[in-house]
């Protein structure tokens, strides 16, 4: 299948390893990945901050850039969910990575191997907007050697929330402190999710606390092939 990749602004500039991993997983499964070079940002930050006009322009730009792409994938559930809500035409066309693999392609075992203990943080948008369900968990369970550890109070928000993390920094911090405590309490060595933004929040706090737990996007774990 030919799949167009929407990398997202954060994925392009801050966490390119997530995009590289997404490409690796899809190519390993025999799919052809394209990258429409004109893409930038979906406008979610603007919508969430009250700048609807700017967001609409970016949304329209997204539609033009991806015009003609039959299947679009992104490793960011929050961008996917927001765009599908704003542009219903994207339903059935734009997928979050785990959704694409499990629901659209019917794959759970992507041939990955990752011999570590992992907790999965279900991000709010993936749960309630994009509705990826347990697709990420199905994928993680099929990874060779991976020990999936349950996260207490998993459905609690990490406190990122876009500009919320800045505008309401104290509350956001109180939330991420609780999230990190829950993660650390599991003794897992890696925390994973399907949103890089939430992982920046969680990882930023874990790093500040000097915790040993690493953050990894789901795509990165899935990209770990049996050989490497």
């Amino acid at each position: 299948m030919r799949v167009a990749l929407f990398i997202t602004c954060i994925g392009d500039a801050v966490t390119p390893e997530v995009g590289r991993a997404t490409v690796a997983v899809l190519e390993r499964l025999g799919h052809e990945v394209s990258f429409p070079a004109e893409q930038t940002c979906c406008g979610q930050m603007h919508i969430n901050s009250g700048y609807r006009a700017e967001a609409d322009r970016l949304g329209e730009r997204f539609m033009e850039v991806f015009d003609g792409c039959e299947v679009i994938v992104s490793p960011s559930s929050s961008c996917v969910g927001t765009m599908r809500e704003l542009h219903p035409a994207l339903r059935g066309r734009l997928f979050e990575l785990s959704e694409l693999l499990v629901h659209k392609l019917g794959v759970t075992d992507v041939g990955a191997s990752f011999p570590h203990s992992v907790v999965y943080h279900p991000t709010c948008h993936s749960l309630r907007v994009t509705n990826v369900g347990d697709a990420p968990l199905q994928l993680l369970r099929a990874v060779a050697g991976l020990e999936l550890v349950e996260l207490p109070d998993a459905r609690e928000c990490c406190g990122f929330g876009g500009t919320f993390a800045i505008k309401n920094a104290d509350t956001s911090t109180a939330m991420v402190i609780d999230k990190c405590a829950a993660i650390v309490s599991t003794g897992a060595s890696v925390v994973t999710a399907v949103d890089s933004s939430c992982l920046l929040q969680i990882g930023g706090r874990l790093s500040r606390e000097g915790a040993e737990v690493r953050t990894m996007h789901l795509a990165e774990i899935l990209a770990h092939a049996a050989s490497g």
């Binding site: 990398i7 994925g11 392009d12 500039a13 801050v14 966490t15 390119p16 390893e17 995009g19 590289r20 990258f35 070079a37 993390a165 800045i166 505008k167 920094a169 911090t173 991420v176 920046l200 929040q201 990882g203 930023g204 706090r205 790093s207 500040r208």
Partner: peptide, 19 residues
């Protein structure tokens, strides 16, 4: 407001599109 309580990952030395 972010860095008071959290570290921030810097921009990557190579963007995805450059890669």
């Amino acid at each position: 407001a972010w860095t008071r309580t959290r570290d921030l990952r810097p921009l990557s030395s190579e963007s995805f599109r450059d890669w």
